[in-house]
């Protein structure tokens, strides 16, 4: 594994001064495919929001290594159900938001940035439905648009928050295969939040498992062994 891209040191996370998880110390290697696993309410979303800067840490520190003088860019892919259908935005409009971080307020989006967005839509296979209303796309199509938007940010790390929620089985597999492909082709660090064990087993290299207030880290192979799972979930193997 390469050098740590993100290092958490004794991190405490939570809302309104109420800790959800504390004493989190771990590192996410650059170029790795890491999954954050955990049941509902285990603190997955809180950890993700803290890493993204949406929530301040209650204690400890987060260190993100920057390869250049510019700060690291998080290509964030939220759950598609998170968006209000009232907004009359096409898939292209949504993907275009990915370049807004590089365009000064009041200035038009340069043609080169628009071309990049079209390339990202093409790379994710979203080009053909990019002109349709975003709210009317299927779950899988929305996720492809959102991944294109995240790629348009020119990210240092791609962060996906349960990208397969509300997506059918075939689309889920296609989506994860695509994420694995861009991980391998671009050497991009991937951080995937999910509670889908089979998906993690097939695609992730490293796992961060939030379970009953504890944070376990290891490779997918060692953490997702049937014996270890049985011990963790307190079930008997047949």
């Amino acid at each position: 594994m390469s050098e740590p891209f993100i290092t958490l040191d004794n991190l405490v996370i939570g809302y309104d001064s109420q800790p959800v998880l504390s004493g989190i110390s771990l590192s996410i290697p650059g170029g790795s495919f890491t999954a954050i696993l955990g049941a509902n309410g285990s603190g997955k979303s809180t950890l993700l929001k803290t890493l993204l800067g949406l929530l301040p840490p209650l204690g400890g520190s987060i260190h993100i290594s920057a390869e250049t003088a510019c700060p690291a860019v998080f290509g964030y892919v939220p759950q598609s159900a998170h968006f209000d259908p009232l907004y009359l935005l096409t898939g292209y409009d949504v993907a275009l938001m990915g370049v807004y971080g590089r365009v000064s307020p009041g200035r038009p989006v340069p043609p080169a940035e628009r071309a990049l967005v079209r390339q990202c839509l093409e790379a994710t296979g979203a080009q053909e439905f990019a002109r349709q209303r975003f709210a009317e796309l299927s779950g899988g199509q929305k996720q492809r648009v959102l991944i294109a938007r995240a790629l348009a940010t020119k990210p240092s790390i791609l962060v996906l928050d349960e990208p397969t929620a509300g997506v059918d089985a075939a689309a889920t597999e296609a989506l994860l295969a695509f994420i694995s492909q861009i991980h391998q082709e671009r050497g991009l660090t991937i951080l995937l939040v999910t509670h889908d064990l089979p998906l993690v087993r097939r695609h992730a290299q490293q796992v961060i498992w939030l379970h009953q207030g504890k944070v376990l880290t290891g490779t997918a192979v060692e953490l997702l062994r049937p014996e270890h799972l049985a011990e963790m979930l307190d079930i008997e193997l047949g």
Partner: peptide, 10 residues
């Protein structure tokens, strides 16, 4: 539309 995205874009 997407406050979280806006934060991640700085």
């Amino acid at each position: 539309f997407d406050r979280a995205m806006a934060v991640t874009l700085g």
